[in-house]
Amino acid sequence: MTTDVLRAPRPMARPLRRISDKSGLDTAAGHVLMVLLSILCLFPVYWMLASSLRPANAMFETSLWPTSMSLDNYRQALEAIPIGRMLVNTLVFSVVSTAFQLLTGLLAAFAFARWTFALDKLVYSAVALTWLVPFQVVMIPNYLLIAQMGLLDSIVALILPNLVSALAILLLAQAMRSFPREVIEAARMDGARNWRILWEVMVPNLRGTIASLAILIFISTWNEYFWPLLLSRTAENSVIQIGIQMFMTAEGNQWGPLMAASTLASLPVLVIYVVLQRQVVQSFMKSGIR
């Protein structure tokens, strides 16, 4: 009897162990997959760094570790283009554009989501339609306007057409429409008016959406090429994407300095990400939970 009792749980234990083994295997497989994906993501960055240290005659070696290393490419890159100035320009362009697009997006989205006004649906559709028009279509008219304003070759001119974004308005309006009505009503009963409801109720609760949108806008502005290319007339007033492109010439591409400039260009974004990593991840997680 006792034996039976003692033996009884054994058949139960086997499947449990199997489940546990399987789970362990799944976890290990998951980890292996994640490690492989991480290597896949990080390898181009590593290759950029390694190539930036290779001399010209070793640029196309396929060894993982450079057989000879030098900082000469960095010296050449720093001497050839005003990298510091270009990075500052790019940062100002990206930060100001992101801030304005979020601000105008929040205000417009609030109006579309919370208010009913004459032709509101038509205006909303018009905003949505502008999103479908590629920037290249409006680039020349924008350029002519900027030229008439005498703003060519300036950061202000880079930023001006990027103050408002249809994507930001549409995305935020959608998020605000799905915002719990009860919370807004409760705030209204507490005496909050629209301005306070937007900034003290909605914005803190939409941090996830806003953070992901800010990252999207920042990265797309940081990588902007065509508009700065058309607008800038001197390297000092240009952005880093133009600077990197300057190492690609009809007389052959200078891969070493190009990789060095690319490494230096990616550093600020990397630093920002490392500093804000926790907040970014938290914002995404909160957004996902909601």
Partner: peptide, 10 residues
């Protein structure tokens, strides 16, 4: 000038 748009000997 397109040579001036490069960081090269050109």
């Amino acid at each position: 000038n397109y040579n001036l748009a490069t960081a090269s000997a050109g």
